[in-house]
Simulated scan of single mutants.
Amino acid sequence: MVGPTAAVRIARPSRDLAAAERFYVDGLGLDVLYRSTTEAAGEHDLLMLGWRQASWHLELVGGAGSTEPSPTPEDLLVIYLSGPVDEELIGRLEQAGGTRVPQSAYWDRWGVTVRDPDGYRLVLSTRSWSNAE
């Protein structure tokens, strides 16, 4: 049965798993939960990132034959911080290959948006999930 304790996997392609790992691990502070590489035809390299205690993780698919990323400005990964965004965190994300970008009046008011090396957008929101609308 689907309910509030169900685990969530967010999967998307990456053109450079090493660059994505630097951004999400060195920059954001996620853990590498799983990694696999393959040279078999039709198979993909996988990198799963998250926090071990979280009920979600980010799966990045790369390698030969994987789909080319095609992010839009609305492909957002939003993390609700329930407080101010630490400028040191933004600096780490930028040093790890991210680019701070404007998003929209709503998200610019309630947080900071950083584009990852594949062009997907990470929003660090000052709001809490309970007051997000």
Rank of each mutant, 00 (worst) to 15 (best):
R100Q: 14
G63W: 00
T38N: 03
R35Y: 02
T67G: 12
L58I: 02
H57G: 11
E43N: 08
G98M: 11
L33P: 04
A54C: 08
S36Q: 09
A54Q: 10
W51T: 07
D45G: 00
L81V: 04
L58R: 01
H57D: 14
R35A: 14
G83D: 08
I90T: 08
L76I: 11
V61M: 03
P73F: 10
G62Y: 06
E88C: 13
L58G: 01
S70Y: 02
I79H: 04
G62V: 03
E74N: 11
G50D: 03
E68D: 13
P69W: 06
L81P: 00
G42K: 04
Q95L: 15
A41N: 03
T72P: 02
L76T: 08
R92H: 05
L93V: 02
W51N: 12
L89R: 12
E39P: 11
S55A: 12
G63M: 06
G63I: 02
I79G: 09
H57I: 01
T37G: 13
W51V: 15
P73S: 05
L89D: 08
W51A: 14
G63T: 09
R92G: 02
A54W: 09
T72Y: 02
L77D: 07
S66Y: 05
G42H: 12
L77A: 04
L81Q: 03
P71H: 03
D86T: 02
V85L: 06
L89F: 07
V61Y: 05
W56V: 15
L77E: 01
G83K: 12
L89W: 09
T72N: 08
T37V: 08
L46M: 10
L89M: 15
L81W: 07
I79F: 08
P84I: 13
W56A: 15
L47S: 00
H44R: 07
A40Q: 13
L76R: 01
I79L: 15
G65P: 03
R92N: 09
R52Y: 00
G62R: 00
G50S: 07
Y34L: 11
E74H: 12
T37D: 13
P84G: 14
E88Y: 06
T38E: 07
T72A: 11
P69K: 01
L49D: 01
P69A: 04
E39T: 15
L93S: 08
D86Y: 05
P73Y: 10
T99A: 10
S70Q: 07
L46T: 06
R35L: 03
L58M: 05
I79N: 06
T67V: 14
V101G: 14
G50P: 02
P84S: 10
E88K: 13
A54G: 13
E39C: 06
L76A: 00
E88A: 15
T99Y: 01
T99V: 11
Y80C: 14
V61C: 09
G65E: 11
S70A: 15
A41L: 11
A64K: 12
V101L: 12
W51R: 11
E88N: 15
W56N: 07
S82M: 00
G62T: 07
A96D: 05
D75Y: 03
G65W: 07
H44D: 00
L47A: 05
A40R: 14
Y80Q: 12
L76H: 06
T99C: 01
G63Q: 02
R92Y: 04
R52F: 01
T37Y: 05
R100V: 10
Q53V: 03
A40W: 04
H57Y: 10
Q53G: 12
L33K: 11
L77W: 02
E43D: 12
